[in-house]
Nucleic acid binder design. Structure first.
Lengths: 111, 111
DNA sequence: ACTCAGGTACGATGCAAGACGTACCTGAAG
DNA sequence: CTTCAGGTACGTCTTGCATCGTACCTGAGT
C-alpha cells in the first residue's frame, strides 16, 4: 500500500499557466506525450521513460508535473509510480491531451 | 501597403515546443487569449492589449509569438499590426485556440 | 526642416529554472 | 546486519529569458 502522498491540486484548481510552463520543457513534455498516447492509463515506473538526465533532475521534473496537476505520484517508499490524471486534465482542459498525443512518435502507442 | 515583413514559419514547420514556450509567459498568453476570443480576427494595434511593460519588451514578446507561428506582424513603417494566424494554428494544433479562449475573462469577447 | 509617437536594435541586468554532486532515506534481497 | 537500487533533500552552478536603458529609425503632422 502506498503511504500518504504529496498530492497535486484539485481539478478546479488547475491553472493553464502552470500547466503550460510544465509542458514547455522538452523532457516533461516527452513524458506527457507518452502518457497521453497510452490509453490504458496504467501506472508506470519513473525510469520507464528513459530520460537522458540524472535521477535528481527526474525527481524535479516529476514534481513539477505533479504540482501542475498533470500526474499522480504513488510513493511505495523505495519505488515510485506515475499515473496520468487523464479525466481531470481532460475535463479542465479538453483537447490538451489530444494535442500531446499527436506529438507521439508512434501513432497510438499502448505501451 | 505593408512592406515585406519578417514572416513566421510555415504551417507544417510549427513546433509544439516552441508554441508552448511562447504561451508559457503570462503576457504573451494574455495577448493570445484576447486574439483567440475575438472571432472576427481583425487586425489589431500592438498597444490595444494594454500590457504593463515597456515597448521594448513588447517588441520582444510579439517577436516570440511571430517566430512561434502564432501571429503575423504587419509592418507599416512607424506602426504595426497584429493578426492571429487562426487557420494555420487550428489546422496544426486543433483545439489549442479553444483552450486559450476558455481562459478569456469575457466569455466570447468580440472586441 | 523639426517634432513627435510608434517601433526596433543592442547591450546589460536580474531572476527563475534546469542540471548535477553529495549526502541521506527507504525497502527488498542476501 | 549489510548491501544495493530507487528516490529525495540541499546546495551550487549555469543557462535562459524577461525586463529595461540608451540610441536610432520611420512616417505623419505642423
Amino acid at each position: 500500500m502506498a503511504r500518504t502522498n504529496p498530492v497535486g491540486p484539485k481539478v478546479d484548481a488547475l491553472e493553464l499557466g502552470v500547466v503550460l510552463r510544465a509542458l514547455a520543457d522538452e523532457h516533461r513534455r516527452s513524458v506527457m506525450t507518452e502518457l497521453a498516447a497510452d490509453h490504458t492509463d496504467s501506472e508506470r515506473g519513473c525510469n520507464s521513460f528513459a530520460l537522458p538526465i540524472s535521477k535528481q533532475t527526474q525527481t524535479h521534473h516529476f514534481r513539477v508535473l505533479r504540482e501542475a496537476g498533470l500526474i499522480d505520484e504513488i510513493d511505495y517508499g523505495n519505488r515510485k509510480g506515475i499515473r496520468l490524471r487523464r479525466t481531470d486534465v481532460e475535463s479542465r482542459f479538453p483537447g490538451l491531451l489530444a494535442l500531446l498525443e499527436a506529438e507521439h512518435p508512434n501513432g497510438t502507442g499502448a505501451c
